[in-house]
Design a protein around this nucleic acid. Structure first.
Length: 398
DNA sequence: TCTGGGGTCCTGCCCCCA
DNA sequence: TCTGTGGGGGCAGGACCC
């Protein structure tokens, strides 16, 4: 199987090209931006000094993404806003605008689907493409089709895009990182030793900070180091499943197909409070937030046509420890009140002495749902007789 | 002054059942 | 009836990804 991995860059103000820009935080909203556009008569007319700066940012939140010039200062995704403000106070701060990202994301994927129909959606700005059967897909080792895709995306959306071409998804993803933001990189199996093995283990999609730290403790820093380890050694240190996967990944092996359709497994809503709240002292506020989260999950379920029977909550305490509690109902639901009742029972099972910074509600074990019944009645998972029944007579805590 | 939100998948443990 | 064993589901936590 031959795979492309493509990711697009989303920066829509031409006057900000080449400048440090971060997106994230909660202080600025897209409405602020609308006001800016209204005042200056257009997106391109906004002068640099009119954009808010990161300096002096106060409040919670993290950086969602940053331009390459901002990354030069050490600012990056998932970094706290206050820390980023210290590292690069002059950076321009843009609000998150999910509505616009989704619009552009849809357009970018439509362009790809029109050229190569076997596409796996990997989020708002990434896809995998199987181009084995695309006419002309093998020309110049895939480079010709990659260039056509890049040009079509730019023509239809104005966005740039980097592409990796490789025999499988694992290598295509790594190849796409080689020339950002608008390159085409091709990795063949014989390039493994020269192009992949010198890279840090962390570059493998699936090795995160924890696994990387454990590898480093064993003296394994590059993918080449990892490839030099025997399978029994990796299984001994990382378990049968993950150890075998590490071994295969280091040798560039990945048999996963490009998956064009998938059903969601769970839906959730969570929120981090402006300040840490206490279950007793802030009972009314917490109760209102909790109910609203349940309503929002229910709205999502109804809008997308799903119902679920495992209801769960997530709490993050002020010290950042997290706990979750779940319970399975004997029926599927997409009803906010039913979710609220079950989530309330889950909440009764967690200690609430400490202040809380985050609360979340999740519905899992989903089935496609239509007009009060499963969409495909033949394949409904049967509720286990062991599932705990909900107790409608027990009042939720808040 | 720390650390968002929405997901998936995996693992370990416990319990129930055959 | 007791004990062992293995499978499967539920649950909790954690790692990882975008």
């Amino acid at each position: 199987m031959d795979a492309f991995f493509a990711s697009v860059e989303l920066l829509r103000y031409p006057q900000l090209q080449g400048l440090p820009v971060v997106i994230g935080g909660s202080r600025h909203t897209p409405e602020d931006e609308a006001a800016l556009i209204a005042r200056w008569g257009g997106l391109e007319q906004i002068p640099l000094e009119a954009f808010p700066r990161l300096a002096g940012y106060v409040g919670r939140g993290v950086i969602t993404t940053a331009t390459y010039p901002a990354r030069q200062f050490g600012v990056g995704s998932a970094m706290g806003m206050m820390k980023a403000a210290r590292l690069c106070p002059q950076a321009i701060l843009l609000p998150i605008d999910f509505v616009r990202y989704r619009t552009y994301s849809r357009r970018f994927k439509e362009v790809i689907l029109s050229l190569a129909p076997v596409m796996e959606d990997r989020g708002v700005d990434e896809v995998y493409i199987d181009f084995t059967a695309v006419p002309g897909g093998q020309e110049e080792g895939g480079r010709a089709l990659a260039a056509r895709i890049q040009q079509a995306i730019h023509a239809k959306t104005g966005l740039t895009c980097s592409v990796g071409v490789a025999p499988n998804k694992l290598l295509a993803k790594m190849a796409s990182e080689f020339q950002k933001p608008r390159g085409i990189s091709i990795v063949q199996p014989q390039d493994l030793e020269q192009l992949i093995w010198p890279l840090a283990c962390r570059k493998i999609n699936g090795i995160g900070p924890k696994a990387d730290a454990r590898l480093q403790a064993l003296g394994i820093t590059t993918i080449g180091d990892l490839a030099a380890c025997s399978l029994p050694f990796l299984v001994q240190h990382f378990g049968k499943s993950y150890g075998a996967w590490l071994h295969a990944a280091a040798h560039g092996q990945d048999e996963r197909p490009v998956v064009t359709e998938s059903e969601p497994v769970s839906m959730s809503r969570e929120t981090t409070f402006e300040r840490d709240l206490h279950a007793v002292q802030d009972k009314a506020e917490l109760g209102a937030i909790f109910t609203r989260l349940c309503e929002r999950v229910a709205e999502d379920l109804v809008r997308k046509g799903y119902a679920g029977r495992t209801i769960g909550i997530k709490l993050r305490y002020a010290d950042f420890r997290s706990v979750t509690r779940d319970m399975s109902l004997d029926h599927f639901t997409q009803d906010a009140a039913a979710i609220r009742r079950a989530a309330g029972l889950c909440l009764k099972r967690v200690p609430l002495q400490q202040r809380i910074r985050l609360l979340g509600v999740r519905v899992g074990a989903l089935v496609a749902w239509e007009n009060g019944a499963p969409r495909d009645a033949g394949e409904v998972p049967v509720a286990s007789h062991r599932s705990r029944p909900s107790d409608p007579f027990t009042a939720p805590l808040f």
